[in-house]
Design a binder for these strands. Structure first.
Lengths: 144, 144
DNA sequence: GTGATGAGTTGGTTTTTCCAACGTACTCGG
DNA sequence: CCGAGTACGTTGGAAAAACCAACTCATCAC
């Protein structure tokens, strides 16, 4: 019996945010951009694609479109709670880029944790709170 | 002066792993698949695209191609250290999917941390070790 | 010699993405 | 009132990417 495509949460997540420009739109919203023009300028994405991505994110409940002007009707975009829960994905991607793809000037943007230090994320185990190291995670078979 | 596209580590990371199927290939390698046939079967991706993604990952030093047979020449694929440092990205994506996109049966795969509990990652601050909550991160201006 | 396995490659179709230009509805300055 | 500017898209057509089934090539098992 030839086994099939793997059921996987990574794959499902990628269906939601895996197409080009989507995560850059989300990044912009995290950085505080709200309006179409800002998103277009800061991401550099084609306007029609950005429209599509915003509509799609809205349809999946990650973004809401909020009217901020009556005449002419204009909208801005906000992350929902669900959308904000993409933060760890964006942060770990930023960290990878900072560590491995930065030029001579270092990372192009810096962030600070409320503890006062420059922020760099690491993964911890939710249950025990310890920082996770290589080799500490193993897949367990869900089958009976 | 109209500001330009944002310099950003997230964007750089996406240039590396942002195209379709790339992260699913990486996921498969994390799960232990080594051979082309396994990667093709478990991801479900088109074979020509998978070939391209593997070559690209190799070119960027995330994957190595290792010959395991002379006649006919056959290769398997392994993550390099650099490739393994994509783990947090995959893990946070899996966690998002587990939390928000799982069906009635719950997540399709389970993992265990060496502490004995089922593994779910959270972000912690590398400097202080504390788990990060919403609103604790702020962008700081790198300019003088 | 027939069939199966493994790792691709090929040619042609379909789907996405890209881009510049356009449309609409206002506001502002003169 | 006129023209320019701003904001948020939409449109049509070209270019790039992805998709798919079928094929290759080498070897092994029967």
């Amino acid at each position: 019996m030839m086994t099939q495509v793997r059921e996987c949460s990574v794959a499902r997540t990628l269906e939601l945010v895996g197409s080009k420009w989507t995560l850059l739109v989300v990044r912009e919203l995290f950085l505080g951009s709200r309006r179409f023009e800002e998103i277009a300028r800061f991401t550099g994405g084609p306007r029609d694609i950005l429209t599509d991505r915003l509509r799609r994110l809205e349809a999946h409940g990650l973004v809401t479109r909020v009217q901020y002007e009556q005449r002419p009707p204009r909208f801005e975009y906000h992350l929902t709670d669900l959308g904000r829960s993409l933060a760890p994905i964006i942060e770990t991607m930023r960290e990878f880029g900072d560590r491995h793809l930065a030029g001579e000037d270092g990372p192009p943007a810096r962030f600070e944790h409320s503890c006062g230090a420059e922020f760099h994320p690491v993964l911890a185990c939710k249950a025990c709170g310890e920082v996770v190291r290589r080799g500490e995670i193993e897949m367990v078979n869900a089958a009976t």
